[in-house]
């Protein structure tokens, strides 16, 4: 659905995006992570045919971003970094206006506006002026605007920023649902737990370049090593480490706990449990040590700094 090859953008000699290669399938959510000024917004603008690449190619929904800009924009819904609402307009007028620009007929404009605002809890505020909307409501309305014409590709820049936890949950649920409908979503965010929750793959962009790309597990394995498993016993370890040495290599241990790494927990963990139980010992818990995407992100950024 989205394919880029060597996508590059320069402004007056400044390289904003360099050699980005992406392939995002239908029904996939790709999180684009990166610090401010990393090139996320420029990438999104190129994928929306708002900016022309200096070098490289990109196809969105089968259309070339340079040769077929109107087709690209017709198939993309964009939530921009700044909502840019017309504050003197009522929400209803605003949505009808954008619906009309996207070619929806009047009944479709009405239907889509009501469906989507209901989904995001804005139906009751449809006839209020946007100047009276709270920050979170404005954000939700901008999201509604991007989804009005039912686009197969959504490019969402910080979709839950400025939202209260309830609204943010509504939006995240909506994104998960859209993915289920087979839509392609690119999510630009600083919110790492959100990316972790929603994204099928994560791309980390820095100084205009993609410096890491993969699923959450792939990135964690690659950067933080294989999953870390923690075993807690009811009594002291007493010979357990030696007893398990042919199955796992213990990485750290305490009086009644130990940690080891494995790439195949589904095979290794049952063997470990069996061995411990056969020793007549009691297990309190066995589970993965939670490793956040934040660790991955920081590791990637640090190693990029070191280069």
């Amino acid at each position: 659905m989205i394919e880029t090859h060597d996508l590059t953008k320069q402004f007056d000699g400044f390289v904003a995006v360099e050699g980005v290669n992406l392939n995002v399938e239908a029904g996939e959510v790709l999180a684009l992570l990166g610090p401010n000024g990393a090139g996320k917004t420029t990438t999104v603008r190129m994928l929306t045919s708002i900016l022309k690449p200096t070098r490289g190619t990109a196809r969105v929904a089968g259309y070339d971003v340079v040769a077929q800009p109107e087709q690209v924009r017709a198939h993309v819904g964009v939530l921009t970094e700044n909502h840019g609402l017309y504050l003197r307009m009522k929400a209803r007028e605003y949505l009808y206006f954008f619906g009309e620009l996207c070619g929806l007929d009047k009944p479709a404009q009405h239907r889509r506006a009501e469906e989507l605002t209901e989904r995001f809890g804005l139906l009751g505020a449809l006839d209020r002026r946007l100047g009276e909307y709270s920050k979170g409501m404005r954000q939700k309305l901008a999201l509604v605007r991007s989804m009005l014409h039912d686009p197969p590709v959504l490019l969402l820049d910080e979709p839950t920023s400025a939202m209260d936890p309830f609204s943010a949950r509504q939006v995240r649920d909506a994104i998960a649902e859209l993915r289920g409908d087979g839509r392609t979503i690119v999510l630009c965010t600083h919110n790492l737990p959100e990316a972790e929750e929603l994204a099928d793959r994560i791309a980390i962009i820095r100084r205009g370049k993609i410096i890491a790309l993969g699923t959450e597990l792939e990135l964690k394995s690659e950067l933080l090593g294989p999953p870390l498993i923690e075993l807690q016993l009811a009594q002291n370890l007493d010979g357990v480490v030696e007893n398990l040495s042919d199955i796992v290599q213990v990485e750290s241990q305490g009086d009644a706990w130990l940690c080891y790494r494995t790439m195949q927990p589904e095979i290794v963990n049952p063997q470990v449990v069996q061995r411990i139980v056969s020793q007549g010992m009691q297990i309190i818990s066995l589970g993965r040590v939670v490793r956040s995407l934040e660790e991955v992100y920081l590791r990637v950024v640090e190693s990029d700094d070191a280069l």
Binding site: I50, R73, V78, T80, G103
Partner: peptide, 9 residues
């Protein structure tokens, strides 16, 4: 508010 307009067809 220009960017959303520029992102339309």
């Amino acid at each position: 508010s220009l960017e959303p307009l520029l992102a339309t067809p």
